[in-house]
C-alpha cells in the first residue's frame, strides 16, 4: 500500500528519529512511503489558539501539499485529529489521514510489527488520541506484541499531562501542577521509559523529567515499534 507520510512540523524539526522510525515500521509491514516535501504544518496551534483565518490558510496549503495521497499517515494523534475532526468545518474537506497506530491496527490489521524493546515502559494515552481520535486500545495492542517489553501500569493514566499547546505557557503554573502529578505517577510506576503517540505531550513530560534529572526517558511509540535491538 502506498502511503504519504505527514511528519508534522514539530517532529520534522525536533524529533526526526520518530519520523525515521515511522518510515521503518511502515516499510516493514509492506507499505511504500512517500514524503511530499511541500508539507509544513497542519495549523493546529493557530486553530486552537484563536487564529482560525491563519489556520485555514495553513490547512488549505496542507491539503494541496498532500493532494492525491490515498492514505496519509502521521505519528501525531493531535495533528491527525485536527485534520480529521476540524478541517471539514475549517476548509470544507478532510484528507484521508490516519495516526500511525490506528493505521496499523484498523486499516492494515497488523498488531505485531516485529519489534523488540527490552525495557520497562509506561504508556501515557494522550488526550487527543483517547478522546478526540478515539484510538481505543490500538496503541496498547501494538505495545502488547513487542518482544521483551515490560509494560507497567500508570496510575491516572488518562488524565492530561498539562501540555495543551499554548496552555503550557499561558497557564504555566497550572500546567506545571498537572505535569508534577503525571511525573509522580510515572516515577511510582517504576518505568524506565514513558511512551505516547504524540511528541508534543512527550516534549512536555520529557522536559519536566530532564529538569528533575529523574532518569526516565520519553520515547515515541513509533520508535519502540521500530526497535529490534
Amino acid at each position: 500500500m502506498r502511503v504519504a507520510l505527514f511528519i508534522t512540523c514539530l517532529n520534522d524539526t525536533f524529533f526526526p528519529a520518530t519520523g525515521r522510525a515511522t518510515v521503518e515500521v511502515l516499510e516493514r509491514v509492506g507499505c511504500t512511503v512517500s514524503f511530499p516535501r511541500e508539507q509544513t504544518c497542519c495549523g493546529q496551534m493557530h486553530l486552537n489558539t484563536g487564529y482560525p483565518a491563519e489556520a485555514a490558510r495553513l490547512a488549505r496549503r496542507q491539503l494541496r501539499a498532500l493532494a492525491g495521497a490515498e492514505a496519509i499517515v502521521t505519528p501525531s494523534a493531535s495533528c491527525a485529529a485536527t485534520m480529521r475532526e476540524h478541517y471539514p468545518e475549517l476548509v470544507g474537506e478532510a484528507p484521508p489521514v490516519h495516526d500511525l497506530c490506528s493505521f496499523l491496527v484498523s486499516e492494515l490489521g497488523v498488531e505485531d510489527v516485529g519489534a523488540r524493546f527490552p525495557h520497562s515502559v509506561a504508556y501515557h494515552p494522550t488526550c487527543h488520541s483517547l478522546r478526540s481520535l478515539q484510538l481505543g486500545d490500538a496503541p496498547s495492542r501494538l505495545l502488547g506484541k513487542v518482544r521483551e517489553i515490560d509494560l507497567l501500569e500508570l496510575a491516572e493514566a488518562d488524565s492530561c499531562c498539562g501540555f495543551g499547546g499554548t496552555f503550557a505557557v499561558k497557564n504555566a503554573d497550572v500546567s506545571t501542577a498537572m505535569l508534577t502529578d503525571k511525573i509522580g505517577h510515572l516515577l511510582n510506576s517504576g518505568a524506565e521509559v514513558c511512551t505516547a503517540v504524540d511528541n508534543s505531550c512527550l516534549m512536555h513530560i520529557g522536559g519536566g523529567l530532564r529538569r528533575l534529572r529523574a532518569g526516565v526517558r520519553t520515547v515515541h511509540l513509533a520508535e519502540i515499534l521500530a526497535a529490534q535491538g
Binding site: F14, P16, R20, T176
Partner: peptide, 16 residues
C-alpha cells in the same frame, strides 16, 4: 514561561 519547569527540546543535527 516554558522553562520555569521544563527543559527545552534540543534541536537535532539534522531535520527529518
Amino acid at each position: 514561561a516554558w522553562t520555569v519547569s521544563r527543559e527545552l527540546p534540543q534541536a537535532p543535527a539534522q531535520s527529518f
